[in-house]
């Protein structure tokens, strides 16, 4: 797997004097599922947000399909449509219905016809099991349903990569499963995905590679079996012990 789709080189991000990312070198290959784990505040979200330029990196480079997206010559808007993003807080457009949420990007950005956009939206709403709810407004559906619509909205743009930032952290426990199942089947269908998550069982099962972030650096990365069963780094071990204890798994 050396068909690299996303790559960062010495990526740094400061908020004022606070250095949140301290030089991240990262690659993701086409079709790869990468889970990012790490303590709260370690910079996972900031890293993900630097990939689609929701945050402007302070220094370093971000490459998408070999092109440096920080170059003026790269069309940042176009690159963004290639990277779907799913947020912890769903961020569905509150003024639009479920169907419209999945159509607006297609009609405004991809310039698809209404009919085509609607067909595409329906296809992906079906994939996430939400096609019955096309009519509903975001405030009329549950958190788990919102997150599934948010995934359908991202899929409707037919991106090459999906970025997930703790997609189940804001959900009631009984809804976590539905959303993880959707993400799991997308992963198995060959999507390139980068998933920030605290769901360790899920990470172990779904990922090709696990990245452990600690205080703004990648402290350790490797296949899930190695990271979860045999971590080299003491901090990885400490983090896993902490989080698995909390979940009552140890």
């Amino acid at each position: 797997m050396n068909d690299i789709i996303i790559e960062t080189k010495n990526l740094k991000k400061n908020f004022g004097k606070n250095e949140v990312l301290k030089g991240i070198d990262f690659t993701a290959s086409r079709g790869e599922v990468v889970c990012i784990i790490g303590a709260s505040g370690s910079g996972k979200s900031t890293f993900l947000r630097c990939l689609n330029l929701l945050e402007m990196p302070t220094s370093g480079d971000v490459f998408y399909e070999g092109a440096n997206i920080l170059d003026k010559s790269t069309d940042q808007y176009k690159t963004r449509t290639k990277m779907g993003m799913v947020f912890q807080q769903f961020n569905l457009f509150n003024n639009l219905t479920v169907l419209q949420n999945c159509m607006i990007g297609q009609t405004s950005v991809l310039k698809r016809s209404t009919t085509e956009a609607e067909d595409t939206a329906m296809k992906y709403l079906d994939t996430v099991g939400m096609s019955q709810f096309v009519n509903a407004k975001p405030n009329q559906i549950s958190g788990g349903q919102k997150q599934r619509v948010a995934i359908a909205r991202a899929l409707s743009m037919e991106p090459d990569v999906l970025l997930f930032d703790e997609p189940t952290s804001a959900l009631d426990p009984e809804m976590v499963g539905d959303v993880l199942n959707v993400i799991f089947s997308l992963a198995k269908s060959g999507f390139t995905m980068i998933v920030v998550t605290h769901e360790m069982d899920f990470a172990r099962e779904v990922s090709d590679r696990v990245v452990f972030m600690d205080e703004g650096v990648i402290a350790e990365e490797g296949p899930p079996e190695v990271i979860f069963n045999n971590p080299k780094n003491d901090r990885t071990r400490a983090f896993l012990t902490r989080i698995l204890n909390k979940n009552g798994l140890l």
Partner: peptide, 19 residues
């Protein structure tokens, strides 16, 4: 979050404002 979601699907400033 509304602005961020609009940005990630590639809406321009004007489109985001309008829609």
């Amino acid at each position: 979050g509304q602005f961020e979601a609009a940005h990630t699907i590639g809406l321009r400033h004007g489109q985001m404002m309008r829609h």
